[in-house]
Design a protein around this nucleic acid. Sequence first.
DNA 1: ATTCGCTATTGACGGAAAGTCAATAGCAAA
DNA 2: TTTGCTATTGACTTTCCGTCAATAGCGAAT
Lengths: 203, 203
Amino acid sequence: MEADRRTRLTPDERRAQLVALGVSYLVDHPLESLTIEYLSAQAGVSRGLLFHYFGSKKGLHGEVARTARDSMLNATAPSPELAPLDRLRDTLTRIVQFVRDHRGTFYSLVRGAASGDAEVREALEQARAVQAERVIAVFRELGAADSELLRIALRSWVAFAEEALVEGALKTDLPSEQIVAFLERSALAVAASVGTGPGATFA
Amino acid sequence: MEADRRTRLTPDERRAQLVALGVSYLVDHPLESLTIEYLSAQAGVSRGLLFHYFGSKKGLHGEVARTARDSMLNATAPSPELAPLDRLRDTLTRIVQFVRDHRGTFYSLVRGAASGDAEVREALEQARAVQAERVIAVFRELGAADSELLRIALRSWVAFAEEALVEGALKTDLPSEQIVAFLERSALAVAASVGTGPGATFA
DNA sequence: ATTCGCTATTGACGGAAAGTCAATAGCAAA
DNA sequence: TTTGCTATTGACTTTCCGTCAATAGCGAAT
């Protein structure tokens, strides 16, 4: 009874299987601690195979990070048919939902992943850039000028939101609506604070 | 000519020497890449000695991170004699100054250090907690209620400020005054956004 | 059914770096 | 000088990354 003769999959299948295992690992471990040794054992394949598919440990980490990132970006993609402020609120609502549905994954992504190798950092960097772009779009449609300071401000607001989500959505049980409302107000406040005077508001 | 007979220092001296070397390493490398091998070679001592003093690589990283953190916290300690808003502006001014004077160290601290082991993360966590506490004190003196949401808000604002400092103070050459002014306005805006209504301002 | 060819997969090898620990050797006091 | 304490060493073990020629599934051809 050889329950484990060598199983030969197509490259796409194998890749998908390995990456999926990697992403599920994020649920309760930091990415950086994901070892080639461990993942190959989990998948029941040799270590050599992982090097064949991902080239290196960094390569593996990169692909896992990008996959987790994309699933988050997809789950929180804005609805283009909504008016700017409605779209913002809708997106924020879905983000809070996602964070609470995938606690471990989100945490590993914005915390653990901020670490180690360039490839992983790059992946997270892009996620922030996308989120920032989404918010910038909202305010541009509301008539804000596209200054460099605005971009820095909203990019930083994304970092703000990540921290608030970890602290508020993961570590406390504040009602989701309250977190959404807070994030919404803070985004408006930050955008308004870009203008020199105490003038410009968007609500 | 034995330029290097075994030199015997007091534990405090040796410790200080090793940690100082570690901190200086941060100027142009991420902490996580600091290896026992390398540091022992730099210091001209055996690897075993580092394990004697720090127990493990994580232990070493932790001590380096805490030392760098403390030098930042000291350099930006608020002046108690100033009125709340003046103190806030003064602290922000000193932070921007510090960031631009110690580019590499600051970057390694808030970025690279956000990574790896629990001990390092913990050190940075405490730095954020201290900075948040300083800002909370300002707004409490201005009459803000000490709600949980306010704490989350200002804690998140610290993350916001870190991001803005990296993007604005390190990656661009915006005048310091402008960055300080922006940080100041954003802090006020965030604090104000905690109150449910569009009311409460502090300026 | 059997053979063949392509390639997915393996396992043995080499190397870097973390930890462990009993042995060694400065240095200050007797 | 000698002695005792302890700072310091260096050899050893372990873990994990990365390389590469050899092996063995599996579909296609006969």
